[in-house]
């Protein structure tokens, strides 16, 4: 009897019997990470298996699969979901000298459970022909009446907006942000729709004058192979908000190693590879994100936007205020 069960299990688990491998649940789209993973496999001989999906559903899958999950690493594109995974006790503590050394303290978890892998900022963009740069100042200012019918921003279902609002709640408190939210929503030029690129295109087309996007989208369009993207992006300027106060809202894409990881050693190896020079340079060159390693050069587009003051808020707070932010956005009617 036992022999048969052994055989059965052997048959079922055939594929995981491979020697060196690491398994990833990734919220980052396959095309935007696969080349790096291939490089990693080439260098180390460790096979990388990946399932992509929305961060929330991947979390759900991890919870259901529990300690038997085949995944070793959860990769997300926003810190809020990393914090949520941590709250659900899915991650384990990792002591890696290299990770701690390379990643600045505010871009990794105090309990060493998750690590930022690349940096992005959420910035104000505007149409220079219709907006005087001197009229722009801060995120808070976007609730001002002078922007009525002039603002484009994507849906509040998007985690980047949730994290921005969460950061503002951390900085200004719920009441003040809620008042701001009402003002902002009443300034919308159209109901929120589409992604960040859509907001850029909408401003270029004259639907609105001001928008909120992650900076790498603008960079990506400027460098795009599609002419229409470049034409649109060139009509847009970037503005660093909050330079005299908290600084620009920052977010990370990041990862943590799961509690039940069966390939912990390989997983750490992969995370270390991802903060290494090769990977960071790739992020910067291909995805136009800021390198987590401040010593590395950023891409030329990013450099052209100059230096800026970044908000040094502990990213953990973004996760903690995530649900508050969402409910606030519901209340102020941010669709």
């Amino acid at each position: 009897m036992i022999k048969y069960i052994h055989l059965l299990i052997f048959l079922f688990t055939l594929q995981s019997a491979n020697a060196a491998e690491v398994n990833i649940y990734s919220a980052r789209k396959e095309a935007l990470i696969k080349p790096l993973l291939d490089q990693f496999s080439k260098e180390t001989g460790i096979a990388v298996n990946i399932v992509t999906g929305k961060a929330d559903t991947l979390l759900k899958r991890l919870e259901a699969e529990n300690r038997n999950t085949p995944a070793d690493i959860l990769l997300t594109v926003d810190v809020a979901r990393l914090v949520r995974a941590k709250e659900k006790a899915l991650f384990q503590q990792i002591d890696s000298k290299l990770l701690n050394q390379v990643i600045p303290k505010n871009y990794r978890d105090d309990d060493k459970q998750w690590f930022g892998l690349s940096l992005r900022s959420r910035v104000i963009i505007y149409a220079p022909d219709r907006v005087d740069k001197n009229d722009l100042s801060s995120y808070m200012d976007l609730a001002n009446e002078k922007w009525i019918n002039r603002i484009c921003v994507r849906s509040s279902s998007n985690v980047y907006n949730q994290s921005l609002v969460a950061a503002m709640i951390a900085n200004y408190g719920l009441l003040k942000v809620e008042r701001w939210g009402r003002g902002l929503v009443s300034n919308f030029a159209r109901p929120p729709k589409g992604g960040d690129r859509d907001q850029i295109k909408a401003i270029a087309a004259g639907v609105c004058d001001v928008g909120l996007v992650n900076n790498y989208y603008l960079a990506g369009m400027l460098e795009s192979s599609q002419k229409s993207d470049v034409v649109a992006a060139k009509k847009i300027r970037l503005f660093w908000p909050d330079q005299s106060t908290h600084g620009v809202h920052m977010n990370v894409s990041g990862a943590g190693i799961l509690k039940s990881a069966k390939n912990k050693k390989e997983a750490i190896q992969l995370l270390e590879f991802l903060v290494g020079d090769f990977a960071q340079q790739w992020y910067a060159d291909t995805n136009y994100e800021y390198s987590i390693n401040s010593k590395l050069e950023n891409s030329s587009v990013l450099k052209s936007w100059g230096k800026f003051k970044a908000d040094e808020l502990n990213l953990d707070l973004l996760g903690q205020h995530n649900i508050d932010a969402l409910m606030l956005m519901d209340r102020v009617g941010w669709k």
Partner: peptide, 28 residues
């Protein structure tokens, strides 16, 4: 996902306790 993972995990527990074999996730 939920019921199948539950089934897989329960089976795994059972097998570990009785036969000291881990089946891992059989179906999930």
């Amino acid at each position: 996902l939920i019921p199948f993972a539950w089934f897989d995990n329960s089976l795994d527990n059972f097998l570990i306790e009785n036969f000291n074999i881990s089946s891992g996730l059989l179906i999930s």
